[in-house]
Design a protein around this nucleic acid. Sequence first.
DNA 1: GAATAAGTGGACACCTTGTCCACTTGGCGT
DNA 2: ACGCCAAGTGGACAAGGTGTCCACTTATTC
Lengths: 222, 222
Amino acid sequence: MSDDEQRGGGAGSAHRAGGLLGDLQAADERPVAPRRRADAERNRAQILAAAERLFAEQDPRSVTMDRIAKAAGVGRATLYRSFADPSSVAVALLDEHERRLQGQLVHGPPPLGPGAPPDERLAAFYLAMLDLLERHLPLALGAETGPARFRTGAYGFWRVHVRTLLVDHGVEDPDPLTDIALSPLSPELFQFQRRELGLSVERVGRSLTSFARQLLRSGNAV
Amino acid sequence: MSDDEQRGGGAGSAHRAGGLLGDLQAADERPVAPRRRADAERNRAQILAAAERLFAEQDPRSVTMDRIAKAAGVGRATLYRSFADPSSVAVALLDEHERRLQGQLVHGPPPLGPGAPPDERLAAFYLAMLDLLERHLPLALGAETGPARFRTGAYGFWRVHVRTLLVDHGVEDPDPLTDIALSPLSPELFQFQRRELGLSVERVGRSLTSFARQLLRSGNAV
DNA sequence: GAATAAGTGGACACCTTGTCCACTTGGCGT
DNA sequence: ACGCCAAGTGGACAAGGTGTCCACTTATTC
């Protein structure tokens, strides 16, 4: 991603929708795209850096376009040229961090990558996501407003991955179950468990691990 | 609830926090409370009626205090006297609908009420919640902004219920698993499954049913 | 080193938010 | 009955956010 918003300009959102695995380390220069100007590139970097700071410092929901622009030292139009709203900025930022995990799921060693049985892969995926959430919770929360996280390309990726695991395991009707299996990873929920309930990451992780095993019990399709 | 916000006035939120089962058909007149005036009661009813209409008509997220006030034909201060923000209004509205289910979970016949094995009760609970979501999705979505649904009294109720089922089943560490078991009921997720994926309520329901059985397999603590 | 189109910044008009205060009105005591 | 007075009311207010627009600046191309 990180290329998708570059012409977001006006109103609509420009999230990656379909092509997943294709552009993991995708081409940077398509023959068609006119390429960004140097100052635009610089501004984009400033925006992302400033936004990451803002999301971490204050309530991620209260980060506004206005403040991102001011913090980055650019005008509002410049910011709107790249991103439609604050959550788009958070999505772009999160995406950078999620890429690594996405690569590992597809090409990495087991149990995260291919090779291990589905229940172990699911458990490993849960733990990796928990780690991601723990490290980048403000961004994950900031990315959750508006059309919600289900519309992001990243969610589509996780969906494809989990659905594959379910199919590998021989689940009867994988589609509804895919999102059910992903629902415990909601950033809002994670924040609630950590902050309000005071649960440790490890404790949540252990629960998710046995949850994964229970869900994909070997030799027992749901 | 429907008593909790009556003096919400200023800033904080006045959600029911702890005492669950206690006030199911609770006292309406405490000896202490000075009781509401007739015009206030009338206005409150107008507000709720207007709000229910607004939430159903437009994007639940775009319902503002200003518009609720105008639609109800009352001033802004009047509205703020009862509710802190639009999602509080949605919560109050939802609460009325949720009361019935809450009563059934505690006093009703099995499998919803006591008497059936935990996995059947969980499955029945899922189906009942799905029905609730299907019928009042706009309200559920409208109630989800801000401090999110985890803070509402209703969520606390579902938590207690599900946790009890998990404990009855002999689950090892019920606390983290409670919220995990509740996470598939997120209104946002439900909307995504219905509208974007085009899944029928029945299909989601079947998945949740087998999910419940898988989670609470008889004779097999997680 | 000019041409040109992408990129920029700030101003604009509009909307929402909470709060405040002068006023109205319902309910209680006599 | 009736008048008191606090609960209840409505609209005004300032602060601040949103998207868009347009005249200007500047990197790249020829």
